[in-house]
């Protein structure tokens, strides 16, 4: 029974990492304004959002199963306050931090219309912090950390995200479609 929890916890964690990588890549894809894999732009956005929500589900599974797992010895605070745990506090804390960041990104996204585009975008940049935090956490914390297949999955995830970020930073990225870019004067949201 406890072994089952342990395996479940590791499995869900791994799936969440893969999903998160896909979410970041799709986020960049959505931001590019281009259609991808024959999908219209709204679908790229939708898949990005739904994959993010699915990642949250897996991450909650990951956290809850490990919370009830007697080996991990997690306290409730460890689930929300990073770097306070007894067991490998730094690497575990990264996981907690990643969860907090993910929840911040997702909750603000769901409340986008409420909080306004500017605040939403500002928080959404945290996605680029959330992902490496999650990767490091997974790489170091898991007992599986040394198995070749987990390493392989992690490397593939990293390659995917690195490619997406490289594309995001490439000069051609913002130059689509071909048009004069708008200026965004610094206006407060006051009105």
């Amino acid at each position: 029974m406890t072994d089952a929890l342990w395996y479940f916890g590791r499995g869900t964690g791994l799936v969440a990492l893969v999903l998160l990588s896909v979410v970041v890549a799709l986020g960049v894809g959505a931001r590019s304004g281009r259609t991808a894999f024959g999908l219209p732009r709204f679908a790229v956005n939708l898949v990005h959002r739904n994959a993010a929500l699915l990642a949250v589900v897996f991450l909650l599974g990951h956290v809850v199963s490990l919370y009830f797992d007697p080996y991990a010895q997690l306290r409730l605070v460890d689930l929300v306050v990073p770097f306070a745990g007894e067991y490998r506090p730094f690497w575990l804390g990264l996981g907690t931090l990643g969860l907090d960041l993910l929840l911040a990104v997702v909750v603000t996204s769901l409340l986008r219309h409420r909080i306004g585009a500017r605040a939403w975008r500002a928080v959404h940049w945290l996605a680029y912090l959330c992902w490496p935090v999650a990767l490091l956490h997974g790489w170091q914390t898991g007992t599986d950390g040394t198995t070749w297949w987990l390493r392989t999955v992690a490397v593939l995830c990293a390659a995917l995200v690195a490619a997406a970020v490289a594309w995001r930073l490439s000069p051609g990225f913002e130059r689509f479609p071909d048009r004069v870019p708008r200026k965004r004067p610094v206006l407060e949201e006051a009105r």
Partner: peptide
């Protein structure tokens, strides 16, 4: 004009909210 007086960039705003309803300082 309202944006300029409020110390913001002197460029027009969207007209969803009319300045006759909420302009300078609201």
């Amino acid at each position: 004009v309202v944006n300029a007086l409020a110390g913001r960039a002197p460029v027009p705003s969207d007209k969803r909210i009319r300045i006759t309803q909420a302009g300078l300082g609201g």
